[in-house]
Design a protein around this nucleic acid. Sequence first.
DNA 1: GCCGTTTTCGGCCCGACTGTTTTCAGTCG
Length: 576
Amino acid sequence: MKNPQVASVLHEIADLLELSGENPFRIRAYRRAAMNVEAIPKDVAAMGEEELFSLPGIGKDLAHKIRQFVDTGRIDIHEELQKKIPRGLLEILRVPGIGPKTARLLFDRKNVKSLEELEALVRSGRLAGLPGIQAKTEENIRKGIGQLRKGMERFPLGKALPIARGIVDLLQEAVPRARFALAGSIRRWKDTVRDIDVLAAGKKPEAITNAFVGLPGTREVLERGATKSSILTVDGIQVDLRVVAEDSFGAALQYFTGSKEHNVRLREMASRRGLKINEYGVFREADGRRLGGREEEDVYKALGLPFVPPELREDAGEIEAAIEGKLPGLVSLADIRGDLHVHTKWSDGAHDLDAVVGAARARKYDYVAITDHSKGLGVARGLTEERVRGQIAEIDAANRKAKGFRVLKGIEVDIRGDGTLDLPDALLSELDIVVASVHSGFRQPGEQLTKRLVAAIRNPYVSVIAHPTGRLLGEREAYPVDMEAVIAEAARHGKALEINAYPLRLDLSDAWARAAKRRGIPLAVSTDAHILANLDFMQYGVSIARRGWLEPGDVLNTLPFPKLARRLQAMRGKRA
DNA sequence: GCCGTTTTCGGCCCGACTGTTTTCAGTCG
């Protein structure tokens, strides 16, 4: 898959053009092309110029350039620009508060060619005095460098969302009559977020702003205006607040939920129809008359579109689908009938079977699959054959007394370094569900990892591949496994892939989940819970499913128990 | 550089805040 490399060189060309003071629309064309290349699941290296040309935002010229990059590893204009502009300026562009104009100014006037040189200049206090740069700006640049050095952190949704909800609760308490909502990437349930966006509307905007900048846990107030303020929390997360009038709440919510790309598309559509959309409402261009904006639906309605769920707003085909009336009926938390990946005390879980069953029933589930680790995972007290049989007996007993609820006998069997499974087929055949996963040998070459997963899928008793790519957000990249091959193999054998709902995993990702759906593969949305509270991670798994365009029919654990049992049975014995 | 339900040329989304200005440029989302 060459897409990330292609996208990154296109982005770099855009940066370099910006530093050259080029036509902003030409720059935007490169950025849009880069984002489109990133978003499509198909490998651009396998596409001819014709097919590339058919992609949105990619014309004849860019199709040719992409082709050149795939074939030769270089693009002419990229080389030329690099000759003119030192690479270090790209780094300087990453400093918050420094844009292309400032970067260029620093280069032209002070010959700054790297972040180090900029830092030295700031330390010596010789920046102030340049046109448009005084003490304040110099200080902001100093801070910006610090921020960049610290790493422009993205936070896992699982960390940001609880903080965000806490902030909204505090604000609501402080100004009870105002209306608050989360917006931005958190509302779209993106797996990681850079900041927290809060929208507010009320009769006393000043009271809202005051409450906001006075929130406990504020490290610094970054910005404070009549309608827009920003703080940095002690957790290091930036929180942006926008305050609007009550009758603009819907338009503002739409606007600040984004994504930026989604909104740009909508506003382009609007202008073609003689309308203008901004955070205050929908307006008729001709006479400035306001057509709506109190509710979010007003915005879509004005364009003749159905409401688009926030999770889909990425300009990844949702606008076309909305126009054609083909938006998916997304799966929701209420559709989930059970959890198919849960641990108990038998291995490294914290609770015994009864407690897990009680917690699953409390969440109105119809079933839960007990999937403890197998013996290969010694650190997790993985189950030997003998102990699996002991657990089977315990589950049989539990099912005899449970009314209207089923406990599935399962295992999370380890896929060993050579692709064999950690327990014999004869034993696996006695279980209701077999979840297979990789817990070792992450450093193996991609080919070997792919082979292991493919071998596991081919085992007749394996039902689901758990956390298929092994990523840990902010800690570990996905292993270099060929997911397209894994998806193809799962499709061939009718096996399911997991969307692991554990907030640091969220694995499969939304993009891979969508690719799997396209191949007709069932997805299991599972929490991998080790303590009871983890069962509530299901909301994160469902959000990935929704961002992957999944409908209830695509998700294995929306099935009622009898159908699920039949489905799991049908997966067996499909040897190639 | 892309694109067309007013266009194959002439547009291309829109507004807030900061810091430096005296009316605005730069940056950001």
